[in-house]
Computed example of a mutant assay.
Amino acid sequence: MSTLSRVSNTMPTSLSCIDLTVTGALDAATVLGIRQESAKAATDGPILVLLDVAAVTTVGASGVVGLLEVLHLLRARGGDLRLFGSSAALEITRLQAHLGQVTRIYGTREEAVDGGLGPGRARHLAPGFRWHRLFPRRRRTLGWS
């Protein structure tokens, strides 16, 4: 049994934001709750959804796919979904499903709010990120066989 709870917002950001906490399983039912809360909050404009995943114990495939759908929904409206907290279950899934190429899991809420760009912090690229995929080089042939 998993629970989703709303947390009071204590830190200002350039986007309005809501805090959600997932406890237990991250599955289709939980993601449905995240999607509903996110869509309701995004009706007034772009929103930053901060999702605390520290208490996630299991992750289903439907949970991963559902998070990607929520992420797409929010980004299409000018917002974002940022996960934070240390969950072994989600960390293992992130590596297996290559979620690191789409989003990253921040260590703390503060890092999630500022996107890892706070004073003195360098932003790290997602594991497996390859610049050449964004900027492919042309291969030149010199006419040699």
Rank of each mutant, 00 (worst) to 15 (best):
L142H: 05
G118D: 14
G63A: 06
G85H: 15
A39V: 00
L125D: 11
E91C: 07
T43H: 15
T21H: 11
D80K: 02
T43D: 13
T13F: 07
A112N: 06
I47Y: 01
F129W: 13
R35W: 06
G79W: 01
P12H: 07
L26K: 00
R75I: 00
D114E: 13
E69L: 03
R133M: 13
G128C: 09
V113N: 08
R121A: 08
R77A: 10
A76W: 04
L90C: 06
V22W: 12
L73M: 12
V56Y: 05
L15I: 02
L74E: 00
I18K: 01
R137Q: 15
V7L: 15
D44H: 11
G78C: 04
L83D: 04
L117G: 04
R77E: 04
V22C: 13
I105M: 09
G33T: 04
L74K: 00
L83M: 13
R109D: 12
A28M: 12
D80V: 02
H132D: 15
A61D: 15
G78I: 03
G128L: 10
T10I: 07
P46E: 04
R77G: 02
L20Y: 11
A29P: 00
K40T: 10
V56C: 10
I92P: 01
R77S: 03
G33P: 03
L81P: 01
L20H: 03
D44Y: 05
V31Q: 04
V56S: 02
G63Y: 04
S145Q: 14
H124Y: 09
A41C: 00
A112S: 06
A88P: 07
T103P: 00
S2Q: 11
A88E: 15
M11N: 06
G33Y: 14
T108H: 11
S145M: 09
S86P: 01
A25S: 07
A88Q: 14
G120F: 14
T103Q: 12
W131D: 10
S87D: 14
T21F: 07
A112E: 11
V22P: 03
L50S: 02
H98C: 08
V7N: 06
P119D: 14
S86Q: 08
T57Q: 15
F135Q: 14
